[in-house]
Design a protein around this nucleic acid. Structure first.
Lengths: 153, 153
DNA sequence: TATTGTTATACTCTATAACTATA
DNA sequence: TATAGTTATAGAGTATAACAATA
């Protein structure tokens, strides 16, 4: 069995957006928690990297600084993170997940995982293994610690 | 080798959003063509199902009718599809991809596939085969011909 | 009355351009 | 001057609620 790059590309392009929709919908549909995918990703990153600056978040997410600033505004407005000045360099921010933010993150993660796991329980373990393997191949291929990727018009 | 549903879910949740970002960025960065992922999907659907109604598009995409109406507005504004009344039932629309729309669709598809294929050419054929298999397992799992999925607040 | 679609409204995501504040 | 971040502005994605037109 072999697959050409073109064949694999076609399959990715057809399937990935569909799975994304499901993840997005499940995240948003949790009353109270209700995070969007970017909010979830930013919150998870700041949780793992407490005290991050705005640009660190932006680089991780592959977003521009203004987009990230907005995203962060939303998380602060909802009480999930705090924004302080960095003591050593007052230009930088020190972003921290609040207790409330951690709870929302955990709730959101658990219920999104549960939703996916439920779907995944309907197939056999070797197909699941195939999925796991595929994700492990894909992950590093698309994680170039995301350039801000300017669209330059 | 076996994988639990939870394990597979974690991998999906970690990797799928990253791949999505890449697809989205590549589509948008094509000057002129520059379709978003939903625009691309809608255009591709209408191309395959010429004369579709708005609700048929909405169901396929898993969107509400108003969201779909907006999406369609954008495609019409850019001359990629036409909107006519259905002769037999004047409530329904008859959506059709224009010649220009077909060209844009093809251009967009080709260059997005090329971008993905380029990345995928850096790994070996058996890893690509794993990806293809995984996508083929995932696709039907997440294609329930998408309910409009109301968020009901 | 049920079905098809649109308009009004509101958020979020995302970008570029122009700005402020600190180093 | 270079770096970190924000504000202004804009277009797309998406939803709910309320509506109009047709069957």
């Amino acid at each position: 069995m072999h697959a050409t790059p073109e064949e694999a590309a076609r399959e990715l392009l057809e399937t990935v957006p569909i799975v994304t929709r499901e993840i997005r919908f499940e995240m948003r549909s949790q009353r109270l928690a209700g995070l969007t995918v970017p909010q979830f990703r930013a919150l998870a990153f700041i949780d793992r990297n407490s005290g991050s600056s705005l640009l660190e978040v932006a680089n991780h997410m592959g977003l521009t600084p203004p987009s990230t600033s907005r995203l962060v505004d939303g998380l602060i407005a909802r009480g999930m993170i705090t924004r302080e000045d960095h003591p050593a360099d007052r230009r930088r921010l020190k972003l921290t997940v609040t207790h409330c933010g951690q709870e929302i993150l955990e709730t959101s993660r658990r219920s999104t995982l549960a939703c996916l796991a439920k779907r995944l329980s309907s197939i056999n373990a070797s197909d699941r293994e195939t999925i796991v393997k595929a994700m492990k191949v894909l992950q590093p291929m698309f994680t170039s610690d995301a350039q801000p990727r300017k669209l330059m018009k």
